[in-house]
Design a protein around this nucleic acid. Structure first.
Lengths: 361, 361
DNA sequence: GACAATTATGCAAACGATTGCATAAAGTCT
DNA sequence: AGACTTTATGCAATCGTTTGCATAATTGTC
């Protein structure tokens, strides 16, 4: 079907081995034959067969990225970044979707190893530590976004404590004293760390912690709706809600919409992790950006480093943090101060405020 | 590193060939040795090496899916569907992102072929027809969503004429007579076909076509904003807008928000292709669903069929259409009739409508 | 110009599976 | 029980590369 090394060798009247050496640049070949072979190979349209090469070298030029899903915007950009970087280096990305399901993760890992991938970036479920650990002897692995506590794998994490702290502090600086928090399950690292960042910011500001303002839940939109209702039904509802559970965002927005709560006039809203439409939304939604792009880039860096280092395993650093940053848009407002006087408008009626809000920009 | 067929054979005191035959089920092996080998293989934890196998058989157990990006919700679900289906069959999906860029598409195709993929599902840019055609001799290819006119490849398309027709008819049935259309570039199949569906519905209803109501543009949010403004600034603005350009949706929503246009009270809005948050949005956005899930499934079906049929090439059907369907939510209302009495609310003041509108998302 | 040192090439054996062909074992039939 | 099928096994070649080792060609040195 396609041109083989043998064909090239024959055309050049040299042996296959010389051809191989000339084209891979390995070892000793005279300048002249080398160039001649390169030329002939190009003329013939020779493309090395990665499978045959892989059999001999044990490498596949395949690097896998295993994420939970493609719905989460962070995973999308990570996938795009990883693919772009790898491709530039001559690797193909094998994107796998594990659904955050341990069984599926385990199966996928197995077939990936079968395929002799050269490297793996994985967002672990946390339930297959043993397997990951075992595999890490055969192939470089980098964990992304989540740590698998059962392993000592190199891990690239978002700086969730910092992100949550930044977000909360931002709201405090705007004058908010009662800040509702909707956060992820407390048996996940991110859930715990975001809560701790929130708590720290409050403490620093000397604001007493109010447990009725803190809600943790599963990573689904429904969580957002439920928690938002609970918060808004409070005798003294919060003046701001920090949705630090990305997946819950939709639920929160639905509830505020249903109740005609104007953002940011009636309620300030700060979310976690970007979505492409947040800046198109009116009001554009302020967020804490977890740095998905940087995370992916760093993960690739670390992976490549390990792939080069070829198993001279234990270095010092095993955990990297990528800074979060605040992206201020229009969904949070200064409290106890007049709303920005951009458009002259009465202040009284609630319908007014909602109009003001949407009118903005 | 890992257990090889030779190890299994040795342990069972048979030759490698017998082991191979027993485990693959190929050819003649006695019941007893077969079972014995299977047992031993399992005990030893033998896993066939796809690379070695691939070298001999010319197959890789890899199937590629090449899409433009992962931002588009349709591509997301397609990727998830394809991955799930393939995995169940023992294939790994190679997901590639081509960015709708001919050069990138071409490069990617080349490396995919190098990797000896067993099949390819591609959303073609339309600019690499020659290459695709050539490759289709080596590997089964199915085009998805777009046709590449330079080839006669088997293609799975959304039924855009029908989808646009259904959507337009829906609006007409609700009493709308002036229906704005925002559609994609007319040098794409989908752009043309959706326009034609719209036109057909109008014709059937005996509504004169008004060119000021029809806008075609690039697949970016800005298009939506620009076109929406043009439509709304018309002396006699439309009572409904059909956003048949998925990527433009965000832009349209922003403009309606900026102008405090209440949906569906002031303007009915119908969009094309779902996004996960459409049903969480307030009002929930009605759409024409292009059937991404079905498209992906059918593409997989066709691909598998070709992969089995092993090149007994030219059958009859080369183009499949997957039905679109209307998903009615809350963003379109009956015209000349009272708004649905869901929540009792004043009808008069503009603030009302803006409140309703801000309720959005 | 002969000899050693260097460099360039070729031979052949891997890598781990599959598979055509030959042969050994087991059944069948008279 | 011997001749003849049928069925089960093994041998060895093969897929397209890479690579250790031996050898041939080139260069340099005195």
């Amino acid at each position: 079907m396609s041109v083989t090394l043998k064909d090239v060798a024959q055309a050049a009247r040299v042996s296959v081995s010389t051809a191989s050496r000339a084209l891979t640049g390995t070892g000793l070949t005279s300048e002249r034959t080398q160039q001649r072979l390169v030329r002939i190979a190009r003329e013939l349209g020779y493309r090395p067969n990665p499978i045959a090469r892989g059999l001999k070298t044990g490498q596949s030029r395949l690097v896998a990225l295993l994420v939970h899903n493609l719905t989460n915007a962070s995973f999308q950009v990570m996938a795009e970044v990883v693919q772009a970087r790898l491709k530039a280096l001559g690797y193909q990305m094998l994107l796998c979707i594990g659904g955050d399901d341990p069984q599926q993760e385990s199966d996928t890992l197995t077939t990936l190893i079968d395929h002799r991938i050269d490297g793996l970036i994985v967002v672990p479920t946390g339930k297959n530590g043993a397997q990951l650990k075992a595999l890490s002897k055969d192939v470089p692995i980098v964990c992304l976004v989540r740590r698998d506590d059962a392993t000592d794998l190199e891990t690239v994490l978002a700086d969730d404590p910092q992100g949550a702290y930044l977000g909360t502090r931002h709201l405090i600086e705007l004058g908010h004293k009662r800040i509702g928090l909707i956060v992820g399950r407390q048996d996940t690292t991110s859930g715990r760390e975001r809560l701790s960042g929130y708590v720290r910011a409050l403490r620093e500001a000397g604001i007493a912690r109010d447990y009725t303002l803190i809600h943790a839940g599963h990573f689904v939109p429904e969580t957002g709706a439920t928690c938002a209702r609970k918060l808004l039904d409070l005798p003294r509802p919060p003046s701001a809600i920090f949705v630090a559970n990305h997946e819950a965002t939709l639920g929160v927005l639905r509830v505020t919409a249903e109740r005609n709560i104007a953002i940011p006039d009636d309620l300030s809203l700060l979310c976690y992790e970007d979505m492409p439409w947040f800046e198109w939304h009116r009001p554009a939604i302020s967020i804490v950006d977890n740095g998905a792009r940087d995370l992916a880039n760093l993960a690739v860096d670390r992976l490549l480093h390990r792939m080069d280092a070829k198993g001279n395993g234990s270095e010092g650093v095993r955990e990297y943090r990528v800074g979060a940053r605040l992206i201020k848009r229009d969904s949070c407002r200064q409290i106890d101060a007049p709303a920005p006087a951009r458009s002259a408008r009465p202040k009284s009626s609630p319908s007014k405020s909602s109009a003001a809000k949407s009118a903005k920009v």
